[in-house]
Design a protein around this nucleic acid. Structure first.
Length: 313
DNA sequence: GCAGTGATGAC
RNA sequence: AUUGUCAUCACUGC
């Protein structure tokens, strides 16, 4: 029913300028074309003019991605692929107009990258969780997610053809599969692509998903196994698999780590309360390794989660 | 509420 | 020289 098209909002001066300001505030390093935020600031208006003109005439092409290896906490590395600044600006503008459309359609159990949502909120929604947990991780999610299923979801949910075409161009620039970690629109696309997974999993129990990491709270062991099978089948269509080492089925009373905190679900007949208390204390102590006054906040969060969660934090 | 700087956490 | 989204805290300006 909307008469003004999504693409018009995305290409508006205000959306583009806001996206540029954001990119610059975030550090604004150059992409594959070597153009920095400082360079783009000079002559910003003409650069934005050119960008809009190219998109309108169907001549827009994103520049080369710049790959940067980042060492992860666990010792492995992940490769960032950084679009050119002008492409990040356009992607940011499109993302900003797409969020009000796509976010309300997302599953309530999806917590990553969404406005008003956070890790503590995700953990809190596991409060009073009872039973067996399927704790799972999608292997190489950002690198291997197939484009076709994502396009299909977008076609259902985004009526503006020009916006979908623009996203299609970016997907092409990311390669045959995968999303560039470093593009402002990738988090939104990731959540959108996993919408079908959320729907399928939530039939098996309470779902809490944070990007490629998720927990399904199931009534019993058989239920957790069914949830895992559903996840495997659903992900298969997108060319994805569960990570064999990071996916486990966890009995009640046994701890597992999710979003950086150790959790324990109650048994349905609520016996192992004593065990729980010990675990809570242990993990709280573990969490106090933080510098300066930040310790205080970590402690406060820790206590809050302890009080609110069935498991600990 | 909107900007700027610095930081922490999740992915 | 390390990108991105979200959340949170501190400080500065309107």
């Amino acid at each position: 029913m909307t008469r003004s098209s999504l693409i018009d909002s995305a290409l508006s001066r205000s959306a583009l300028r806001r996206a540029f300001t954001r990119a610059r505030a975030n550090g604004g390093a150059a992409g594959g074309d070597g153009i920095t935020a400082a360079a783009m600031t000079r002559g910003l208006e003409t650069a934005l003019d050119a960008l809009v003109r190219e998109v309108r005439r169907g001549r827009y092409q994103p520049g080369p991605l710049r790959a940067v290896p980042i060492p992860k906490r666990d010792g492995s590395t992940r490769v960032l692929r950084i679009p050119c600044l002008r492409d990040r600006v356009l992607q940011g503008a499109v993302a900003s107009v797409l969020v009000p459309v796509l976010d309300p359609l997302m599953h309530p159990g999806s917590f990553a990258y969404r406005p008003g949502r956070s890790v503590p909120l995700a953990l809190r929604s596991l409060r009073r969780g009872q039973g067996w947990a399927l704790d799972a991780d999608i292997r190489s999610f950002f690198d291997e997610i197939g484009h076709h299923p994502l396009r299909r979801v977008l076609k259902q949910k985004v009526s503006c053809l020009e916006t979908r075409q623009l996203i299609g161009i970016w997907l092409g620039s990311f390669g045959r599969r995968g999303l560039a970690q470093g593009s402002p629109i990738s988090p939104l696309l990731a959540n959108t692509a996993l919408g079908p997974l959320d729907s399928a999993l939530s039939k098996h129990g309470r779902l809490v998903r944070y990007a490629d990491d998720f927990v399904v709270v199931c009534a019993d062991k058989a239920g957790a196994r069914e949830a895992r099978r559903t996840a495997e089948q659903t992900l298969r269509f997108a060319g994805l698999r569960l990570h064999p080492d990071k996916t486990r089925i966890v009995p009640p009373g046994m701890s597992f780590t999710f979003l950086g905190t150790e959790l324990v679900l109650h048994s349905r007949d609520r016996r192992p309360q004593k065990q729980l208390k010990n675990k809570m204390k242990l993990s709280l102590r573990r969490e106090t390794i933080s510098p300066g006054e930040h310790i205080e906040r970590v402690l406060r969060e820790g206590w809050k989660n302890m009080l609110n969660l069935t498991g600990r934090s």
